[in-house]
Simulated scan of single mutants.
Amino acid sequence: MILGIFFRYADNYPDKAIVDIFQISSIISEKKNNTDIQSSQDYIKNTFNEIDKELSIHWLRIIKHYIRVPLDNRYGSHQLVLLATSILTSGGGPVLELGCGYFSTILLHQIIVVEQKRYLLSTDTDLKWLSKFKANISSSLHEFRHIKTTKEWDHIGTNHPRWSVAFIDHKPGKRRVIDLIRLANVTDIVVLHDTGTAGYKYETGLIVYPYRYRYKYLSTNTDVLNKYNGTLFRNIRLLLELTIEMQIPKLG
C-alpha cells in the first residue's frame, strides 16, 4: 500500500516522484506483515486448484500489499497480470521486461529481484527514462539495457536460453508483434499489454500461442500467453478471473 501512495504521486509529478518511489519501495520487504504475505504466496503457489473462499482471502491480501486500489485502468492495467504471473513462476527462471515503466519495473524489481532473488532484464529505447530507474535501483540481479536502434531488439533475450516471463510493452509499436513471435519458443509466460489497440496488429503473433487469455476487467486490456504449459496458464487465468468475481474496485 505504501507503493500505491507514491504511484499516485508519480502520476501527477513524474519527474519529482521517482526518487521517492524507489526510496519507499525498499521499505516494503521489511513490513511486519511479510510473514502473512509469504504464507499467502505459498498457498497460491502450492495449494489452490480452484476458486474458493480461502483463495480469495490470500489473493486479495497479496493485491493490497503490492498494488494500489482502485486499480489503474490505463498505464498500470497490466499490474495484476504481472503480479499473478510473478507469484506462480516463483520457482525460478529469469524475467524479461521490454519497455520500462512506473507500474511494471518497480513491481517486478520488488518481487522478482528483492524477494525471489531472480534475474531481471529491463530494456527501453529512451535512455533518459531508463537511467532514472537504473540510478535508483541497484542490484546485481537487475540489469538495465538501452536499445539504441530498432534492430537491436532482435538480440534482446538471447543472453538466456529460456525466460520464465517476458513482458511486452515497448517502442516502436511495430516491434511488439515481432518480439511476440520471436519469444514464443523460449518463454514460459508472455504478458502483452495494450491488446485492445488495433494499431499494434497483434493478431499475427497471437496465433502462435495455443493458450491465450485476454484480461478485460480493466479498460486497457492485457493478454496472458503460453505455448506449452497449460497448467501454469490455467492457474494464472483463475487468479485474474477471481479479481473480476470479487469486483476489485477500479478507477473510472
Rank of each mutant, 00 (worst) to 15 (best):
K132D: 15
G101C: 13
I21E: 03
K151N: 11
I137E: 01
E115R: 12
Q116R: 11
T85N: 03
T125Y: 02
Y213E: 08
V114I: 14
V190T: 14
G99M: 07
Q38H: 10
L98Y: 14
K132C: 12
L108Q: 06
T220L: 09
V113F: 09
N185T: 13
L232P: 05
I112Q: 03
D179S: 08
D11H: 06
N185H: 13
S40D: 15
L96W: 06
D36I: 10
L232E: 06
Q110N: 14
K216N: 14
H193P: 02
N136H: 14
R8Q: 12
Y202T: 02
E97K: 07
G91K: 15
G199E: 15
Y209H: 02
V81K: 02
Y102A: 10
G157S: 05
G4M: 09
K132R: 15
D169F: 03
G91L: 08
H193W: 05
I106R: 00
Q247M: 09
S56M: 09
W163I: 03
E115H: 07
I62K: 04
K227Y: 01
R175V: 10
I5M: 05
E50G: 07
I181A: 11
T220D: 10
T123Q: 04
I87H: 01
L242V: 03
T150W: 03
L130D: 01
H160M: 14
Y200E: 13
T222C: 11
E30T: 03
L232F: 09
L232W: 09
D169M: 09
S40T: 05
R176E: 12
G199A: 13
P70Q: 12
V165G: 04
K31R: 13
W59L: 11
H109V: 03
D188T: 13
I181E: 13
Q41S: 02
N12T: 06
L55W: 00
S219L: 11
T195W: 01
R8G: 00
E54W: 04
P172T: 10
H109Y: 15
L141H: 06
W129N: 12
T243Q: 00
T35R: 10
Y215N: 08
W163Y: 15
N136Y: 07
I106E: 00
E143V: 07
A166R: 05
V177Y: 06
Y66Q: 05
R118H: 10
K134F: 02
A84P: 01
G252K: 07
L232I: 11
S25Y: 05
I181C: 07
Y119V: 09
Y217S: 08
N73C: 11
R182N: 12
Y9G: 00
V95Q: 01
T105K: 04
L108N: 04
Y217C: 08
P249L: 08
K45N: 07
F133I: 04
V190K: 01
R234K: 14
I18C: 02
N185W: 07
A10K: 08
Y9H: 10
G76R: 02
L108H: 02
K250F: 04
I236W: 00
I244S: 11
Y213R: 06
T125G: 08
L88A: 10
D36E: 14
T149P: 00
